[in-house]
């Protein structure tokens, strides 16, 4: 545990009504790290990500990002969210806007760029994810893989310090997964700090610095991918890995 961790999640707990969804979750990441969060459905992975950008409110614990306490009531959540990009399982592209419109909205309305600057930035980000030829397409005119890449470009356009990915490929047809993972890998190579919920094991193995296994709102086990995947210490981890391996 280094004291200058870029993202430090410590003892975070969250309840929805009487149901405890997160139970003392802790992990930390350095700048440029990739952490992969795995766990069964309903184990609290999405909730954990959402606590980091305050789309969900943790009731206990602390999360610091770049030295700032995220959970403090004084934190400007809009400012926080500018610094933390999020990519959703179901893309959540703005249905009424073109690819460019989707990516430009944040720079225009949140960062206050001019219309033209925002469009230029959008075009650059879309090119970065390989969609230079789809600038004027609407979400409903794009394939799932293309939509998700627009989703990534939309998050990148805010120039975030940290990217959150919530199962970015699990709504995609298998043949479209590759193009999204490729974009994510390129981001890793550029040094982006990424917290990723995914069950794409080969991706995790290739790029993760650490894998965190969450079950029932608790961190069961965490470690480098080769260790966690090859020699899990906990029986529950092993069982879970077997289960998802048999799906591949």
């Amino acid at each position: 545990m280094s004291d200058d961790a870029f993202l430090r999640v410590s003892e975070v707990s969250k309840w929805y009504g009487d149901e405890q969804v997160l139970d003392g979750v802790s992990f930390e990441m350095d700048r440029g790290d990739v952490t992969v969060l795995i766990g069964p459905s309903g184990s609290g992975k999405s909730t954990m990500l959402r606590c980091v950008n305050r789309l969900a409110e943790a009731q206990e614990g602390s999360i610091t990002l770049d030295g700032e306490e995220v959970l403090s009531p004084d934190t400007d959540v809009d400012e926080l969210r500018r610094d933390v990009g999020m990519v959703f399982q179901s893309f959540n592209l703005f249905a009424h806007l073109t690819a460019t419109g989707n990516v430009a909205l944040g720079p225009r309305r949140v960062l206050g760029l001019s219309e033209e600057e925002a469009r230029d930035r959008a075009a650059a980000q879309l090119e970065r994810v390989g969609l230079a030829d789809q600038l004027d397409s609407y979400p409903a005119e794009l394939s799932g893989g293309q939509q998700q890449r627009v989703g990534i470009a939309r998050a990148l356009a805010m120039e975030p310090k940290l990217m959150l990915f919530d199962e970015p490929t699990s709504a995609l047809d298998p043949e479209l997964i590759g193009e999204v993972l490729e974009v994510m890998r390129a981001l890793v190579d550029e040094g982006m700090t990424m917290l990723v919920v995914t069950h794409e094991m080969s991706f995790a193995r290739a790029v993760a610095d650490e894998v965190v296994f969450l079950d029932d709102g608790r961190v069961v086990e965490r470690g480098p991918p080769e260790q966690l995947f090859e020699r899990p210490e906990k029986e529950r981890t092993g069982r879970f890995l077997e289960r998802i391996a048999s799906h591949d």
């Binding site: 950008n53 789309l55 809009d78 400012e79 969210r81 500018r82 990009g85 999020m86 959703f88 179901s90 959540n92 592209l93 703005f94 249905a95 009424h96 909205l105 944040g106 309305r109 949140v110 939309r154 998050a155 805010m158």
Partner: peptide, 29 residues
């Protein structure tokens, strides 16, 4: 879809801004 507002908030729009820039343009159509 609720995800539309969530996505708006995730890029730093306030709730009202998300409604104005994201939800209403769709809903009014």
């Amino acid at each position: 879809d609720d995800g539309q507002i969530t996505a708006g908030r995730a890029i730093g729009l306030s709730k009202l801004e998300s409604i104005y820039y994201v939800v209403l343009p769709q809903a009014l159509r």
